[in-house]
């Protein structure tokens, strides 16, 4: 299983990819990840790749191979969508983060066009308002927990409990309840 996660620097994609990777190792899989760390973390476009296999594979997902795409932000999901198989579980946070280039007039952000492109590209995208769900859980900072919960619902390979545990392992204890709740709400949303 190849998982591509894309978003904007600071949204927590690195945290989420580490949680999935660690959970997969505990579940007996071979894991490869690839992160963009450095300048792009300053609100730039970031992408994390997680590859979970029985055989060794390289760090980068070939085009069209990802069976899960977790888009933390709409435009960023579209930016990397060709990594995903059209039959993939595509879960996209409807949150939009408009970069200054748009209001400085050098590029545009057209939500409707982007959404309909996603619908054209793949069979059954799931749009989720992870920001709002995180807010309900108690903090807008819990977006990555919501997305991980959504991922747990969409995948069969890795046990849900392990993903949640590995997420909590990376967070200070005082944030555990909040993130558990965010994770649960994200999972429930996808399960419907």
């Amino acid at each position: 299983m190849d998982i591509i996660m894309c978003g904007v620097g600071g949204q927590g994609t690195v945290l989420a990819s580490r949680a999935i990777g660690d959970a997969a190792i505990r579940d007996g899989w071979q894991v490869r990840t690839s992160e963009i760390i450095g300048m792009a973390q300053r609100e730039g476009s970031v992408v994390s790749q997680v590859r979970i296999h029985r055989q060794p594979v390289g760090p980068l997902i070939p085009d069209g191979s990802a069976s899960v795409l977790l888009g933390f932000e709409l435009a960023e999901a579209v930016r990397h969508i060709e990594k995903a198989d059209p039959d993939a579980s595509i879960i996209i946070n409807t949150q939009t983060i408009v970069p200054p280039s748009v209001y400085l007039g050098v590029s545009q952000y057209n939500i409707e066009t982007l959404r309909s492109y996603v619908q054209e590209y793949c069979r059954a995208p799931v749009f989720i308002d992870a920001l709002e769900i995180a807010r309900q859980a108690g903090s807008i900072k819990a977006v990555s927990a919501v997305m991980l919960g959504a991922f747990a619902a969409a995948n069969q390979e890795i046990k849900t409990d392990l993903i949640m545990e590995e997420l909590l392992n990376k967070l200070p204890v005082k944030l555990h309840d909040l993130n558990k709740q965010a994770f649960r709400l994200g999972k429930e949303y996808v399960e419907g």
């Binding site: 904007v8 792009a40 730039g44 069209g64 435009a75 579209v78 060709e82 492109y117 054209e120």
Partner: peptide
């Protein structure tokens, strides 16, 4: 790989 033409995406450089 077949890729449909993508809509214009916002330029997102680090800031």
């Amino acid at each position: 790989s077949v890729t449909a033409s993508k809509p214009e995406l916002p330029v997102r450089t680090p800031i």
